[in-house]
Structures are given as C-alpha cells and as structure tokens.
C-alpha cells in the first residue's frame, strides 16, 4: 500500500461527504457552493489519475463557471427548496439503490484498476497514439494531438455544441430585457457594482486581472507542450472578465467587451475551425488533414493546423462563456 492510496481515501471521503451534504441541504446557495467544492475535489482526483488536462478543465469549469452560473440563476429565482415528500424520495431511493447495486455487481467483471493488461491499454490505438504522435505531429502533449488532430472531427462537433448552447441561451434569455417587466422595482442581481468601501477588492482584482488574462493566453499557446489548450484557456479568459464584471459591475464589463462583439466571436471560432478543414480540402487533403498545410514538412503543417484549430476553440469558448454570463446577469438588471 503506497502513499497514494491514503490520498485517494481522503479525497474520496471528502467527495462522498460533499455529495451527501449537497443532496441533503435545502439551501440552494449552499448546494451551489458545495457543487463547486465537489468539482475541485474531483479535479484533485483527476490529477492523481494522470489526467492533468482534464483536471485543469474541471477546476476552471466546475469550480468557476458552473458555480457562477448557478449563483446567477439563484439571484433571479428563489434560493430555498421545499421539503422533499416521501412519495418522491422513497421510489427514487429504491431506484438509485437498485441501479447502484446492478452497477457494482457489473463492476466485479471490470479489470483491476490501473492494470497494464486491460483491454483499454492493450488496444493497438494506445501505442499508436503514444508512440507515433511525436513523429507524426511533433507535439509532446498527446492529449492535445489527439484532441485537435487525430480526433479533430469530434472536437469540431463539441465546439459546435458549445456554439449551439450559447445561441439557445441567447434565444431563451434574450438580450436581458424580458418582454413584460411586471415588477416595479429593479431587483438586486449578481453583478451590481459593489459599494465604494470595497476598495481592497477593487484594487486587488484590478491588480490580478492582467495576470489572469496573460495566464489564459499562456494556457492557450502552451497547450502543445504542457497541459492546456483552447477549452481551458477559453474558460480562464472568460473567468477573468467575469471577475471584472462582478467587482466593477456589468456595465463596465459590457463597455470593455461588448455583447455585439461576443455575438460575432462565437461563430468566428467555429468558422476558423471549419475553415481550416476546408483549407485542407482545397489544398488536396482530407477534411482537417493538416499535413497538406505545409508542402515541405507535414509535421510543421500539423503544428500550424493545431494552433489554428485551438485558437478557434479558444475564441468560441471564451465568447460563449462570457455571453452565457451576460445573459443571466443582464436578465436581473433589466427587471
């Protein structure tokens, strides 16, 4: 038994306790904060299981974006839930226990955790990715090369999903003004400018903001060599701007990055991604076959292709996340 097992046990205990607390509490603000804690703990577990890129994303998305979105919604709705009646909880508990029992029974057929002879590790694709990625693509981070090159179609699809979700939220919440503003008094929403005596918060967040944005750019362009890439960078960039909106008010943020610009940036990223695909088609290759981008050195073409594609992902994710936040925040201000 090595030390990692003990870290595993501690983290799993925290995770399970958080999940139980989250299920039991009736204060939705507390539940939203606990779900942020849950995500952060699971990110720690992902690091232990060697998934550094995933941990990075989960920490930025789960503890940052999701919590802000939940809090934004709670500012618009009510924050306490009713007591769950037994007629709902008992059948649900029975079904959950039954499902869990079946899954645990099925898990006895699974290979031991982290064994080297599992079907996953034995599959020829594994060695293909790990051995040939360096020569074919020349990117040390295999996750990036699989994401942007080997499975480029898949990632294009995911980017389109983010784009679609952003459009759908924009359609549902509009530009922030509901058609009928029945309530006479404007309600306090999440990003009201904080009062003047919050000087410490203002100074420190202004001090930190350039570094957060710089870090996002580092994550974006260093994704070939270390953990990072367009998805993570986009979320971090958006988080920096959301911090600005939370501390200095929504209007200041909208003056810095206008919603109109965001509405153009969300499709722009998808267009850059798909455009790289069509460029490779026109150059005589297959769709998203970056080898043809450089006539002399295929690996260099791969580098260029991955850079452009990640840039497209980064632009779409940044703009989509920020647009989601604006939609929720403006809904509160408009009322």
């Amino acid at each position: 038994m090595n030390g990692f097992v003990w870290i595993d046990i501690v983290l799993f205990t925290i995770l399970a306790a958080t999940a139980v607390g989250l299920a039991r509490t009736r204060q939705l603000f507390a539940a939203a904060m606990l779900s942020g804690l849950f995500s952060l703990t699971s990110a720690c577990i992902f690091v232990l299981q060697d998934a550094v890129d995933v941990a990075f994303t989960e920490a930025a998305v789960g503890a940052g974006m999701t919590t802000v979105l939940f809090l934004g919604t709670l500012a618009l709705t009510r924050s306490r839930e009713k007591v769950t009646p037994p007629r709902r909880s008992i059948p649900a508990a029975l079904i959950a226990i039954f499902t869990g029992g079946v899954l645990i029974y099925a898990s006895t057929d699974m290979p031991p955790f982290a064994a080297a002879d599992t079907p996953v590790q034995q599959h020829p694709l594994t060695q293909r990715f790990l051995d040939d990625s360096m020569t074919e693509i020349g990117v040390p981070n295999v996750v990036t090369s699989v994401l942007a090159s080997y499975r480029g179609y898949d990632t294009l699809g995911e980017t389109v999903v983010v784009f679609t979700a952003a459009i759908a939220v924009l359609m549902l919440l509009g530009r922030g003004r509901p058609a009928t503003s029945a309530e006479p008094k404007p309600r306090e929403a999440l990003p009201q400018p904080i009062q003047h005596d919050q000087r410490v918060l203002r100074v420190v967040s202004k001090l930190m903001l350039p570094f957060i944005l710089l870090f996002a750019l580092y994550v974006q362009f260093h994704g070939d060599y270390g953990p990072g890439g367009g998805f993570q960078a986009g979320v971090i960039f958006a988080s920096g701007l959301i911090l600005y909106a939370l501390v200095f008010g929504l209007d200041a943020a909208r003056a810095a990055v206008s919603p109109a610009a965001l509405r153009r940036m969300v499709p722009l990223g998808v267009l850059i991604y798909a455009g790289v695909g069509f460029a490779t088609l026109l150059l005589g290759g297959a769709f998203l076959d970056y080898n043809v981008l450089d006539a002399h050195d295929p690996a260099h073409g791969q580098h260029l292709g991955i850079l452009l594609v990640e840039l497209g992902v980064g632009i779409t994710v940044t703009a989509a996340m920020l647009m989601l936040f604006y939609s929720f925040a403006a809904r509160g201000v408009g009322r």
Partner: peptide, 16 residues
C-alpha cells in the same frame, strides 16, 4: 475534457 465544457454549456441551457 470536451465533455466537461459541453457539460457547462448544457447546464447553462438548463438554467436558462
């Protein structure tokens, strides 16, 4: 990695 980002996008849709 991609599922996480898509997950937050769909969560936002649900919250909307």
């Amino acid at each position: 990695l991609t599922a996480i980002v898509v997950g937050v996008a769909t969560t936002a849709l649900g919250l909307a």
